[in-house]
Amino acid sequence: MQVYKYQELMEKLENDELEQIGLGPEVYAQLLAIYLYQSELSKAKLLWMRMSDNLKNKEENKELTQLHLLTVALQKNDSSDFFDYIKFEWSENVKPIVEDLLAKQREELFTLMGTAYASIYEQNLLEMTQMSAEELKSACAALNWTQEQDGDQVIILPIPKETVSSVAGDDQLLKLTEFVSFLEN
């Protein structure tokens, strides 16, 4: 998944914001959603702060408030709030972005769980992900996570995810040659 997916749209919206005043709520909603998707939390927070008050508090702009709640949840690292607030009737305007955001956050959460927990109660994980028991089961199965019984509760044992990244060998060689030539001169 690429972070730069909405880069072009974002640049256009940012530019609009700098040249006009009195933009509609849909522009702000889109920009806010993109910032969240790109994990630019401080940008999202600032955007909310500079929005005019008569946009924020209106009933028909509930979407904006909802997006702000998502920002706050992400800032507090409160995933259960986040996945709760994201269940909302999003307008067509931001729907694709929010869907991408959801998928990205889920993936990140599971990666984090893999590294941060040796064992976690299923109940807690259910709450954090706000998924149904079946959904969670299949997600864990896909990651090869096992579980065991602890009294009447189920404990899930996550496995850290292997990260693979590669850089072309030629590139490395080129860089190293550069350094050596610098040191010798």
Partner: peptide, 20 residues
């Protein structure tokens, strides 16, 4: 637990939590 989780996420510490 919340603080630790946050710090693991941002790479400030290296730890694993065992809820069991």
């Amino acid at each position: 637990e919340r603080y630790i989780l946050k710090m693991i996420k941002s790479g400030e510490i290296y730890a694993t939590i065992n809820q069991k």
